[in-house]
Design a protein around this nucleic acid. Structure first.
Length: 285
DNA sequence: AAGTTCTTCAACCGCTCCTCG
DNA sequence: GCGAGGAGCGGTTGAAGAACT
């Protein structure tokens, strides 16, 4: 014997909600609240709907604080980071994104972000086969032509927003706000990233826009060995994922997922280099 | 212009979790 | 401690519109 259905399916309306139904539900909830019982709500409100359907409609669409429209790059990062950490616990992920629902996040992941990550994974496989400087995993197939051509240049730049190498503090707690990873960095040696022997390095990701929009973020990986100093960087939309893919990560999210142990911003601030410096830099042309 | 395929996302389904008697 | 029932969650579906041929 199966479980009793939550409502009489023969006498409830299904499918898309009409504007009139929306108005009735919204008006009822704003006046009376849920009363702690969604199952009984539709009857009280005069709706021929299942209580679960009413709940879903309210939570996913009618709630006043719902944010409709495209996801920002920063939200992408939060979703990727948390997905890598906890998997498809959409309600938990959505709770970190004000105004977003679990359904929204789930749909967005399934239709867009998942593909984006798969594309990044594909590109990393190709890229990993083509770099003899840094490799993540050996490729069984012959290396295809390089996707990017590194050129070495010497450039003077200030260290404003650029962090010096430091040692990861494994005892530090994870930031409560995942978006706060912007402006932070982490250092080698790091799991999953195999660098040239004898090199120490740092990784830095920061947003250049006033709104920490990851779509316009810059990322860089810096390695140094005495006087030798090499820097990889990526800028602009899509730059981050392709950039981290070069190092064997599916995305910047995957990278930072493993580095929630880095120090708090105040500690990082003390590590900022205040003076300008001149160092050889590798960029992608 | 018409037909087909792809993409998006609201909504449903069925399960587990939680609370209460 | 147990069972019933509601709440909440994640997977899946399908309609509608967009993009492509």
């Amino acid at each position: 014997m199966g479980r009793a259905p939550c409502c009489d399916k023969a006498n409830v309306k299904r499918g898309p909600w009409s504007p009139e139904e929306d108005m009735v539900l919204k008006s009822y909830l704003q006046t009376h609240g849920t009363g702690g019982n969604w199952i009984a709500l539709p009857q009280k409100a005069g709706l021929k709907r299942c209580g679960k359907s009413c709940r879903l409609r309210w939570l996913n669409y009618l709630r006043p604080d719902i944010k409709h429209g495209g996801f920002t790059g920063e939200e992408d990062n939060v979703i990727c980071t948390l997905y890598n950490k906890i998997g498809s616990r959409w309600s938990v992920i959505a709770s970190q994104l004000p105004g977003r629902t679990d359904n929204d996040v789930k749909n967005y992941w399934n239709t867009k972000l998942k593909k984006k990550m798969m594309a990044a994974q594909a590109s990393l496989s190709a890229a990993a086969a083509n770099t003899n400087l840094i490799t993540h995993s050996p490729s069984p197939s012959p290396p295809p032509p390089p996707l990017v051509t590194p050129t070495i240049k010497t450039e003077t730049y200030t260290c404003d927003g650029f962090l010096t190498p430091f040692n990861k503090d494994a005892s530090a707690s994870a930031p409560t706000d995942p978006s706060s990873m912007f402006g932070h960095n982490a250092s080698f040696p790091m799991a999953g990233l195999v660098g040239p022997p004898g090199l120490n390095g740092s990784v830095n990701q920061y947003a250049v826009s006033p709104h920490d929009d990851a779509s316009t973020a810059s990322s860089s990986v810096t390695m140094e060995n005495g006087s030798s100093y090499v820097n990889w960087s990526a800028n602009g939309p899509g730059g981050d994922d392709a950039f981290f893919a070069e190092f064997g990560f599916e995305s910047s999210c995957e990278f930072f997922d493993g580095y929630y142990g880095y120090p708090d911003p105040a500690t990082l601030a003390t590590m900022l280099v205040s003076s300008s410096d001149t160092k050889p830099q590798v960029t992608y042309s």
